[in-house]
Simulated assay, not measured.
Amino acid sequence: MANRDRNKSFSRKERTREEAEIKTAQKTLISFNFKDLDQTQPTGNPQTIALWHQANMLAPLLERIRQVCQLSRTEAVQQQQLKFYDNFPPKKSTDFFHPGHVPQDVYWGVLKNIGGQVGTVAGYLVEDVFHVVFLDMEHKFWISEKKNT
């Protein structure tokens, strides 16, 4: 047997392996926040979580949120999952009013197509967090004029 000098250093380190550094681009996904939810509007027909539950709209809402949470803000807009407006709708175009607990200069928008074509959730976006403010199963947040009817 060959006599080895155990004090000699090896040309490579034992039990180590250099890993190729894999860089993946992490996209920032949309998330949702309900701290500003206003269940007192619209006046005369307030939209509440209980009402949405009774109308079988709560499960579709949660499913839509789950789907959109897999997207970045850009993807959600490009896929027409979220629609944004510059401001709160003018009084003549909404049954809602701007709640006092929400800053005036926020970027308002809606999560569309909840439980069919009509259901929406209105709120505002800060960075990549959509703050839900209104539940709107009758599409009264931003009432548009009917075309070709």
Rank of each mutant, 00 (worst) to 15 (best):
N33G: 07
R6E: 08
P42R: 00
S11Y: 08
N33K: 05
P42K: 01
N56G: 13
G109N: 05
G109H: 02
Y107H: 15
P99F: 00
F10C: 09
A20K: 12
K27M: 08
L62Q: 13
F130E: 12
K27I: 07
D5Q: 07
T74E: 12
V106H: 06
K27A: 05
D136N: 15
F96W: 02
K92V: 02
K140V: 00
N56C: 12
F10M: 13
S144V: 13
E14V: 11
H98E: 03
V132Y: 10
D95C: 07
Y85K: 01
T94H: 01
F96N: 01
H98L: 02
Y124A: 00
K147L: 14
E19M: 12
E14F: 08
A59R: 13
A20W: 02
R12C: 04
A20C: 06
H101C: 02
D36F: 14
T40C: 02
Q70T: 12
K140H: 15
E127N: 05
E21Y: 06
G116N: 06
F84Y: 11
R66P: 05
L62Y: 07
P99E: 00
R66H: 09
V77S: 10
T74A: 07
M137A: 15
T48H: 04
S31V: 01
S9T: 06
V133P: 15
Q67D: 12
S72W: 06
Q26H: 11
I30M: 06
T48N: 03
N7M: 02
H53G: 14
P46K: 00
I65P: 09
K92R: 11
G115K: 09
P89R: 03
P46E: 00
S72I: 01
L111A: 10
K8V: 08
G115A: 04
A122F: 00
L58S: 09
L61G: 10
D38F: 00
A50Q: 07
V110T: 08
E21C: 06
F130L: 04
N3T: 05
K112G: 15
L37I: 09
Q117W: 06
L111W: 04
N113C: 09
G116A: 05
V133I: 10
A122Y: 00
I30D: 03
Q70S: 11
K83G: 14
Q70F: 03
T149R: 13
Y85H: 14
Y107M: 10
Y107E: 09
K92Q: 14
A76W: 04
F32L: 01
N7H: 07
K13V: 12
F97H: 11
V77K: 14
N7R: 04
S9V: 04
D136V: 07
R73M: 07
L58F: 11
P103W: 00
F134T: 15
G44D: 02
L29V: 00
H53S: 15
G119K: 04
